[in-house]
């Protein structure tokens, strides 16, 4: 009669022995899996680096290629703009993050320098034209899409840059709650008048031209929603009301 496990004390030893062997085998297996994974990751990195070095220039200079690249990134769930903390090597290798931020700075430059002229609202095509001019020929071609993307990267700064649709036209607005001097004057007088403000008051008290008064008021109605229009005013026919200065709660 032969028992596989054996009998007596020797059986315990054998049992221990086989347990140890299994443990060794299992750790060897996982080690090889980890190694495999590492080598895959290295390959991926190398491929990416190759991709980056080959196409870096195209990505920066060719808007169509850039668009395709962005699409590819979003479809595989990689953010090419991710900062140095998360997946930074990706952004570093391509230099796309810097490229995007650089464009952002140029957008701010154009918006601020034209603010006096346009009151903080600039049409998209005009912005693209001015930014392209600023970048010069070597900067490559940029598109609306690039501008929109860069404006998004500006969001953490809290400067209130925003793409808005005004009557079907894309506009970039760079003043949100920031008031210009004229608006502050209007708000100040409205406060004294219980909310009501008309062109005549601004012309008489502040010596503004009628055009300036009208522009300031119309802007506050249309652009900022800071005023409500009243076209049944007994005195002037057309009056503006500042809700924040009125006695009713909206």
């Amino acid at each position: 009669m032969h028992r596989r496990g054996g009998v007596g004390l020797a059986a315990f030893d054998r049992h221990e022995q086989s347990k140890r062997s299994f443990a060794q085998l299992s750790s060897a297996l996982s080690q090889s899996q980890v190694d495999h994974l590492h080598s895959q990751l290295n390959q991926f990195r190398a491929a990416l680096a190759r991709f980056a070095s080959t196409h870096r220039e195209s990505i920066r200079s060719d808007p169509t290629f850039r668009h395709e690249f962005q699409q590819m990134c979003s479809s595989i769930g990689v953010d090419p703009l991710a900062g140095p903390r998360k997946g930074g090597w990706w952004a570093e290798m391509l230099g796309l993050g810097d490229w995007q931020y650089e464009l952002g700075v140029q957008i701010v430059d154009v918006c601020v320098s034209t603010r006096e002229r346009n009151g903080g609202v600039i049409e998209m095509s005009e912005l693209v034209r001015l930014v392209s001019k600023l970048r010069g020929v070597s900067g490559g071609v940029i598109t609306e899409e690039d501008v929109v993307r860069s404006i998004k990267t500006l969001q953490p700064l809290g400067a209130g840059y925003q793409v808005v649709d005004i009557g079907g036209r894309k506009m970039v607005r760079s003043v949100v709650k920031e008031l210009d001097e004229d608006q502050s004057v209007v708000l100040e007088i409205a406060q004294l008048e219980g909310g009501r403000i008309v062109e005549d008051i601004l012309v008489q008290r502040k010596g503004w031209t009628r055009e300036r008064a009208r522009a300031a008021l119309e802007n506050m109605v249309h652009r900022d929603g800071l005023c409500w229009l009243d076209d049944q005013d007994e005195e002037c026919g057309r009056a503006y009301w500042v809700p924040s200065a009125m006695q009713w709660d909206v």
Binding site: R196, G225, W228, L229, W241
Partner: peptide, 11 residues
């Protein structure tokens, strides 16, 4: 009681 409430707003 707010006068502009009776006017259609352009914004």
């Amino acid at each position: 009681s707010a006068p502009p409430f009776f006017t259609q707003q352009p914004n």
